[in-house]
Design a protein around this nucleic acid. Structure first.
Lengths: 418, 418
DNA sequence: AGCAGTTTGTTTGTACTTCGCACAAACTTA
DNA sequence: TAAGTTTGTGCGAAGTACAAACAAACTGCT
């Protein structure tokens, strides 16, 4: 399936990107041009719409403390090209005044494609500019199988989804498990799905679909999803933490997704929390993963003689504890404490204060999250005005990851810095 | 067309601060104004001069990929006000052309005041815009003594230094040990110097000297000093690590000093590396500090029956190992390995790749640094293009910290983002 | 010595974007 | 109906980078 001509929006393709212009290049100097200034401010107005919902031009100007004509100069071209749309007038309040016309994302605008790629499972969908998920399609693949067969599967699945878009999407975002080089669009390694190792997936899909494609690792997609329409919405600083067969994390720092070099930041599962601890599959001892991932939970459940230890999850422990099982309560406490150590280390390092849980630990709901938070509070060094928040994302992890994957396209295509 | 109701986040007013304008305020969206654009680019040209040394306007324009008149528009006002100065013409090369006149910081411009405040010791000095340290003055104070006496001492010491400036300095930067709230200019706690605990030092000195005053914690000043005229010069991402009686760190991420909320990032000494480890003076077990700070080294030296264990340092161990002492070599290896765990955790979390060592571990010179690097390399998860550099700062730690303290003033006063 | 070629720094006008002011449109209230 | 209030737009001012042209100051060759 090929998409030919794409809609032309004045925001255009990613060039010497806004992010780079803001940050400068290492050793070289990059100045910010007039046109980049316009891009920065366009992205910021778009983000304000996401964070605050539909708003009139006058209200946006007030919120940002700028001139009304500035806002009009920014949004009018986007209204004309169909990215934004003007809503029905809102009746004036008791003081009178002309009714305001809130502006928001146009439901008729092109959508974003999204792929969630986990060991053995593919999900694809379309995501509207207001975050609705459509045309969800699922497929399975053999994690140890043949690469060509995998590529056929992902292309077919994506084709089914994209066929339901009435216009060429802005692009395709991929959230993938494993170790990702997001700069070069390559899946470096997925221990649980060797078929993906070394796969230059971005290039392959860009060529096949003639659409821009971006990729990032799964926790980072969760983070973007949290930030866009989840608990991280409107926040300046927070982290997403994933626990499951492996552990991972992602950071939103000072209003930007932190990636590290080539997207390598956030490999929290292989930070050491017990120097002389158990051997980890990465080859060293005492990784956080050895005491806070599902394999550890299953081993401990078996050690305690619990029923069906191979199916133990945080959710099951919370349920058991609520039903009075002391074994479940005790194991849950140890598990949440072990999870807390990784979060504690993040807090002492980066002082993010706000953590959104995903994966198995999130399956334990607010009870598990509160236990983790209490463990962290007991351990962390106290400071004035330090309030640590640990929440679970109530939206559902698959949808969050897909939204996040789509959000990756937003970042690159619309200069919207999520 | 109707839009559904969406939650509204409170947004602040437009910020005049360049840093805030670039990043946006938590949940708030701040647009970048024309005048802020000018400030951003002025700061960037100044940083380019620091990173590259004296350069002609034409060369700066080439480095930045911008128009020559843009550079002139930026630097000419600074030349006129005496911040920058035009040097002697440089002879043209074999192709001819008008000789270029390099521009750099004016030696006759005002200086920066700097204070280094460690338990029991005060150092003050002036720092020129090109990083030279002048009028260095030292004093001592009783860490457990009377606050008024401490304030008298620091004011007198600073007065001696400032009396040697021919013009009012741009401001005073303070590098202080302990836990610092850099937003509010308060020293929150210094375990080794209780006289400083709770001291609103910025306010006190601003009132006394009628100069702008900024404060940050010691590792962050080291970082700024590294970035300005040390191994971090021109780098986009690196960390400074301090080992001594306590441990600390600071990060330069994506071209900016990372502070965390109220300056609380970088408390690496209290990350956990051994869940069931020794009790730390912060109240929990297994902090990195319990296995990598000088108290650990002294205890281990005593346990091994080394001579004068209370004076053991990394430098002494390196010397001992070079002279054939297997005990020194063995303890040095354990020490550098323990230090490596904290750096490893940083690398897995933030992927900074470049670490500058300070304090006791730096006293071991390149030998100690190389041992740490090898330990990290053995432990870290491999990725393509990942090269980990661990260096010591050869300039001297006191000078680096003082330069860094002065650099804090540069950041705030000249909108030069170090 | 004179000329062509090259490079630097400056002058002048254009382009991009935000700011400020004024006005018309569209309402509420007395 | 008139006064007051708010929204969105038109127009000119202000700030800053970009582009073209020119003069100054040099090198190398004939």
């Amino acid at each position: 399936m090929k998409f030919g001509n794409q809609p032309s929006y004045s925001l255009g393709q990613r060039s010497a990107s806004t992010k780079e212009a803001l940050a400068g290049e290492g050793g070289n100097v990059t100045l910010v041009s007039q046109s980049t200034l316009g891009e920065i401010n366009r992205g910021r107005v778009l983000q304000a719409l996401y964070d605050n919902g539909p708003k009139s031009r006058a209200e946006l100007a007030r919120l940002a403390g700028v001139n009304r004509t500035t806002i009009t100069g920014i949004v009018q071209p986007m209204i004309e090209e169909g990215l934004l749309v003007e809503g029905d007038a809102v009746p004036s309040d008791f003081k009178g005044g002309k009714p305001a016309r809130p502006i928001y994302f146009n439901p008729e605008a092109p959508m974003l494609g999204a792929v969630l790629l986990l060991p053995g499972r593919i999900q694809t969908c379309l995501v509207t500019l207001s975050g609705e998920i459509k045309a969800l399609t699922k497929a399975e693949f053999d994690p140890h199988g043949d690469r060509d067969m995998f590529l056929t599967t992902i292309k077919d699945t994506l084709s089914v989804t994209l066929a339901q878009a009435h216009q060429a999407p802005f692009g395709i975002g991929i959230a993938s498990g494993g170790m990702i080089d997001s700069d070069n669009g390559v899946i470096l390694a997925v221990n649980l799905a060797p078929v993906l190792t070394g796969l230059p997936l971005v290039d392959i899909l860009q060529k096949h679909f003639s659409l821009p494609v971006v990729i990032d690792h799964h926790p980072r997609a969760l983070l973007v999803g949290d930030r866009w329409f989840g608990p991280g919405r409107g926040q300046r600083t927070f982290a997403a933490i994933y626990t499951g067969e492996v552990l991972g994390g992602a950071f939103y720092i000072d209003g930007r997704v932190y990636r590290g070099l080539a997207g390598s930041g956030g490999e929290l599962g292989h930070t050491v929390v017990q120097i002389d601890g158990e051997l980890c599959n990465c080859g060293k001892h005492g990784c956080w993963e050895t005491v806070a991932a599902l394999p550890w939970l299953r081993r401990e459940a078996a050690r305690q003689g619990m029923e069906n230890p191979e199916t133990v999850t945080c959710a099951r422990l919370v349920k058991g504890a609520a039903e009075g099982s002391e074994a479940a309560d005790g194991l849950l406490d140890r598990y949440t404490r072990n999870v807390a150590f990784g979060i504690l280390n993040l807090q002492q390092t980066l002082s993010l204060n706000s953590y959104v849980l995903h994966g198995d630990i999130a399956g334990g709901g607010v009870d598990a999250a509160e236990r983790v938070r209490q463990h962290v509070e007991r351990l962390v060094r106290k400071r004035p005005n330090q309030e640590i928040s640990i929440t679970v994302n109530g939206i559902g992890e698959g949808h969050t990851a897909l939204r996040g994957a789509a959000g990756l396209v937003l970042s690159s295509h619309l200069k919207l810095v999520i």
